[in-house]
Design a protein around this nucleic acid. Structure first.
Length: 400
DNA sequence: TCTGGGGTCCTAGGACCC
DNA sequence: TCTGGGGTCCTAGGACCC
């Protein structure tokens, strides 16, 4: 039996939601109606476009390009900062509305959901359900969505990406040729800007040409990825809508510095605050990790990373920081200006599952107490209360 | 010109073991 | 001196997504 899948995608999510929030708080302007973008902070060197209004799009402004470039295309562009707390709120409102239609919802990102409607159609068609959702979101929540209607996730996702905004598109098997095969390969989900030129060299320019190309040849050249691209081009995708929330597989934080940093002391200090953030999130998930990874990016955008597996799992700030510091020192080259540093923990498992290991030092219980005390202070007074004074934190961990 | 931050998945090559 | 093949684990880096 054919599956019945919808993909709901909020139009210009960050910008629409910011607009609604501003209107609610007395703004006279609807920033959806003017050339506007949501962007990072150029003075902090994170000046990229996160979302754009339709008017901004008409100037040729694209997501992920620099604000500098956006301003060249449209000097009068208005720029607003992003605010994840607000986005999370609107995202939840959408999720709650969609939950009235099926239990099988996957939150694919903050502004996208997949719905498996196979057992929830009642006496309606899939398209009728899409139309009802489309109307209700606009009327009850105040923003617009695109909805893709299809028999698998890939085709639903491709369909929701057709003409925007505020539209519903179907992409059933008999429509693939006319609606998808005519598109350039760059429009295919999973096919990024590194693969496009390689396929061009093979005389493959449209999704249709990819679909009709030799699958074995693609596998030889691109491995598993090649097989998947060929299947996607042919509209084949058997993946399930993952409606059970999944535990994270890794947790990481990174920071681009306002100015490049070459001094090891400063890098270590920042690494400690990254370790605090990462392990705080780890403990909040009630998980432990056994792989530590540190990433550096130089001023010339050269990325390097080192990682190491620990002989045990931990969520201790001190333990993670200790290993991270070793990794940093392995990579550190004096006088090399660093632009970004990241810390990530991998190999996550549930707290109760991880056992005390032979290798684990027995001061661990003491560390856990320190960590949980700090966590409690943060829960009560906010995260920043205790991160601010990094030097005293450093001493706290050193002496314990 | 200036290029975020948070993820997932895959691959190549080296080390090591039998 | 010349010397296998298979398997597993680990690390570095790349590609892609929103």
């Amino acid at each position: 039996m054919e599956r019945q899948i919808l993909h709901v995608d909020v139009n210009n999510a960050f910008l629409s939601w910011t607009a609604l929030y501003m209107l609610k708080n007395g703004s006279k302007v609807d920033i959806r109606e003017i050339p506007a973008i949501i962007g990072g902070d150029e003075s902090k060197r994170s000046g990229i476009v996160l979302a754009k209004s339709q008017k901004a799009k008409e100037f040729g402004i694209k997501t992920a390009e620099t604000i500098y470039q956006a301003r060249m295309k449209c000097p009068e562009i208005q720029i607003f900062p992003s605010n994840y707390k607000i986005y999370k709120e609107y995202s939840n409102k959408l999720f709650n509305l969609l939950s009235q239609y099926t239990d099988k919802i996957e939150r694919f990102s903050i502004d996208e959901c997949f719905l498996d409607m196979t057992q929830y159609l009642m006496n309606s068609t899939l398209l009728e359900k899409a139309q009802e959702i489309h109307t209700r979101v606009k009327k009850e929540l105040g923003f617009t969505v695109n909805i893709g209607v299809a028999n698998n996730k890939l085709l639903a996702k491709m369909a929701s990406d057709f003409a925007k905004p505020d539209k519903i598109h179907t992409l059933f098997k008999n429509e693939i040729k006319e609606k998808m095969w005519t598109l350039p390969i760059s429009d295919l989900f999973g096919l990024g800007k590194k693969t496009v030129p390689k396929l061009y060299n093979m005389q493959i320019r449209t999704i249709g040409e990819l679909a009709k190309s030799d699958k074995e040849k693609l596998i030889r050249k691109f491995g598993k990825h090649g097989a998947q691209l060929w299947e996607y081009a042919n509209g084949i995708d058997n993946s399930e809508v993952k409606y059970e929330p999944e535990k994270p597989k890794c947790i990481g934080n990174s920071i681009t510095f306002p100015e490049n940093i070459a001094e090891i002391e400063k890098l270590e200090e920042i690494l400690l605050s990254l370790a605090e953030q990462v392990t705080y999130r780890l403990r909040k998930e009630q998980m432990k990790a056994n792989i530590v990874n540190v990433q550096l990016r130089t001023k010339d955008f050269i990325d390097t990373s080192h990682q190491e597996k620990l002989p045990y799992s931990t969520s201790s700030t001190k333990e993670i920081y200790k290993k991270a510091k070793q990794l940093l020192l392995q990579m550190y080259k004096p006088h090399t200006p660093i632009r970004l540093m990241g810390l990530r923990v991998d190999g996550l498992e549930n707290e109760e599952k991880s056992q005390i290991s032979f290798f684990q030092d027995n001061t661990d219980a003491k560390q856990e107490k320190i960590d949980s005390t700090i966590d409690k202070i943060r829960e009560k007074y906010g995260y920043d209360v205790i991160t601010r004074n990094k030097l005293s934190m450093k001493n706290l961990y050193k002496n314990s």
